[in-house]
Each structure stands twice: as structure tokens, then as C-alpha cells.
Amino acid sequence: MLKTQRSGDIACGAFLALLGLAAAWASTTIDEGAGGHLHPRNFPLLLGVLLFIGGAGLAVHALIARTGANKAIGWPDRRGWKFWGIALAALVLYVGLSNPLGFLICTFFFVAGFIWYFGRYSPIVAVAWALGVAAFVYVVFIWLLDLTLPLGPLAFLS
């Protein structure tokens, strides 16, 4: 599935056309506001329609002209997908847990885990780097730049 740029173009074109259609439909529900020459609805509607035409054009062009049929998409192998998925999952966990646990704790676990898993370093090296990065975040963002970041249980540090 989606092995060549041609099939990729068809899929992307179809997706973008659908997106355009959805945007155009959603634009029709926009309130018309104060009237006059101000039409908040028109621009998104126009964009939706153009996206529909452009997306459909891309898909049809790839279907008929068979462009990119002999050009493979550089997908990763099964092992690559695994690493890809784990990296993304780590990022999702980092963002998701930063609110309750705070950025410092999450940074520590995220950095330590990433270095340990992807770099095959010993846990001690990973923990040392993680402590260093967390300290950097604390010193630069919280202490020097005085940003109010959620810190979870470590809120007393702010």
C-alpha cells in the first residue's frame, strides 16, 4: 500500500480534496457577522473550494499521467516503524504528563528513557544526562527567564 509516489499522490490528493470539502461545508455555518463588506465566511469557503479542486487535481493527474509510478516512497522497514512509534509515543507521554507531573520530572524521565533506549547507553549515563538537562531547564527557563511552568509535585521550586 502507498509504495510509490503515484499512489501517495492519489491518496494525498483524495485526502486534501475531502479536507477541502469538509472545510467548505464547515465554512457555510460561519456566522455572517456585521454585514457590510465584511464577510468572514468567504475566505475559508474559497480556500475549501480551492483545496478541493487542487486535491482532486493532484489525485486525477497521478491516476491518468501515472507520474511517479516508478518512484518508491522512502518508508522505513518494520524495525524503523517500531523506533518511529516509540519516539512518537515518548513525545506524546511527555506532553500528556507534563501538566500533572510538571516539566522537570517529565523532562528527566523523557531524556533518560530516550537516551537509554535509542542510544543503548548504560542507565547511569542516561540518568546523568537527564539530570543535567532537567537542571538546565530549571536554571534557564525557570530561574533565569522566570517562566511560570507547571511543575507538579515540585511546585515549591518556582
Partner: peptide, 14 residues
Amino acid sequence: FPILGPIIAVCTLI
């Protein structure tokens, strides 16, 4: 990269 990557992620996300 295994060390640089997470540092990049942390700095950009914060």
C-alpha cells in the same frame, strides 16, 4: 543523536 534528540524535543516543546 540519541542524546541530542531529546534535548531538542525538550527545548522546543517548552
